[in-house]
Nucleic acid binder design. Sequence first.
RNA 1: GCCUGGGUAGCUCAGUCGGUAGAGCAACGCACUCGUAAUGCGUAGGUCAGGAGUUCGAUUCUCCUCCCAGGCUCCA
Length: 661
Amino acid sequence: MAGVTVRLPDGSSRDFDHEVTAREVAESIGPRLAKAALVAVVDGHEVDLSVPVPDGSEVAIVTPDSDLGREVLRHSTAHVMAQAVARLWPGAHYAIGPVIADGFYYDFELPDDARFTDGDLDRISATMREIISEDQPFVRTELSPEEGLALFADQPFKQEIIETVGAREEAIDLESEGVSSSVVSAYRNTPEFTDLCRGPHVPSTSRLGHFALQRVAGAYWRGDEKRQQLQRIYGTAWESDKALADYLHRLEEAEKRDHRKLGVELDLFSFPPQLGGGLAVWHPKGGVARKLMEDYSRERHATGGYEFVSTPHLANANLFETSGHLGFYQDGMYPPMEMDNGTYYPKPMNCPMHCLIYASRQRSYRELPLRLFELGTVYRYERAGTLHGMMRIRGFTQDDSHIFCTEEQLPGEIASLLEFVMSVLTAFGFSDFTFNLSTKDPKKYVGSDEIWEKATDALRHALESGGLTYKVKEGDAAFYGPKIDIDVRDAIGRTWQLSTIQCDFNQPERFDLEYVGADNARHRPIMLHRALFGSVERFFAILLEHYAGALPTWLAPEQVRVLGVRDDHQEYVDQVAARLAGAGFRVEVEAADEPLGARIRRAKLAKIPYILVVGDDDVAQGTVGVNQRGSDKPERGVPVDGFMARLASDVADRVLPAGVA
RNA sequence: GCCUGGGUAGCUCAGUCGGUAGAGCAACGCACUCGUAAUGCGUAGGUCAGGAGUUCGAUUCUCCUCCCAGGCUCCA
């Protein structure tokens, strides 16, 4: 028999005088690796350890403490969960069970239209632990589509997957289910339980166990709400109990940052049921922070060459006929009002009104680019189940601008917009950006190929000349033009899509917008949509979660709280507070009718950047004690002037709170 | 809109196998006057989300509605 030589990731190679499996390669490297091995990557393909490796191949052994290893653990755990459900609900149909970020899910249809309830999770977990202790092997078999159909004769979803892939080419998302047009692969755990699957899988169920089932949910088959709704269970699985516990702890920490919780705790805003679902009121403290955000936004737009406009909340239906919103998005609009001699709608976007401003008179090329800006409040009828605090709300304010320019001006405008957006986001404490360029959907677009190409090139060029790396999302553009979306990463690693720069060839057409060029002929301007925060409400929610409620001093509703040690220090407390307030700082005092420790605690919980404590020494020397947020060692005897200078530079420099990168 | 789970004081929650409710924190009052994360005592605070039904009696059981949470779908 011929020998086999394989290359390892470290560049070394190993010779065998016989055919070997991936497992034997691992064993030859070391017993610990062999013990930890889950699957292998052979020439870039993920395979089971049991497969023979070809001569000359590159072999990497995958262990549980790698991203790929965890994916395999999760995928195999999903199979175990399916088997547990099949045991507990004989006759259950199982659909798909993929790996997702940090976990997995599996969709089922239970007999007699039964539903999972939260209590079922414990029963299923217990059965899964039995299956794991049974040390069942994962045995791969490859079948023809016909054999596959026979094997899964009582599993309609599996049959549909096999048939769909056989019939159509576009089955990329189904390939993970183990089907290509000619071969069906399946993994058998027991004579009773086999699942359609591409694999690879861990060698046996005993390699699993550090998992938790998290929640049940309804999910439409194939993600299509017109099709039946299946019962989904979400779970997570890790390489060790510690990794699992760490993950669950991270989830708890993220929950503490929930802006809805912080909104109540810090008295920022609320969602009174009497107001109606998806509608918010801003309380004084939230209102101040919002005003500061908006002031800063206006200031930047003023210096950035924008012109300020203002438009009403209602518009005649004709306007939205012209813009096309009624045709495309009527379901997402609030219902119409019949008034006087017309039908009116609350506006879902500001752009049609900005188009009217442009169209109000003849425009010259000398006026372009014309940059209109508005903090415009819009109303969208979001479906009840999609509402989510300030993140997804029915009435919100966009920091919306529309830039009308010539084709020639487009590249320069886009480049300066990118710079502008990043500069403003940086001021709010975001520094990790991701850029996505969405290109034409060949099946759905307006405008000439030529203009699409020019605009897409302009977007791409702006990104590249700015030295920005970006991902291309082919075919992801809106029908009216290509766009750049900007995502930011927050303090705990989550990404949020915030800003968007979109070319629009459609509305200038629909509104018949024109300018007179230097050639004395009429031309169509290009319109750029640009939202920076996106929605002021959502942006504020993201800021709150990013900072875990500890807003930077320049945005903090209350910047300083002054506390006297005893109530006979109150006169000095008031003097200090008055000086700070006189200098424009947001300062409050709390009388000394409770022990100092209790008042400090309250101020700390309110996440106030500076707590000033004053006592006899301070009254005598004109100083304050400074207890800064994020620091455990208070300072004593700080001159008031010195503190005010420090506070002023903290605000002016928009210093980030401690602990935020 | 669909699936699952919820809604008890401002907040966090306990409780009622059907006999109209309780704690901690917060609020208010009094006392305490204290140098860096909870002083003590007291007071007040509830249509137990809303409506209908069963019952001698419903916060508790049933149904409907509203709202909230987690998903699905959607997000110009």
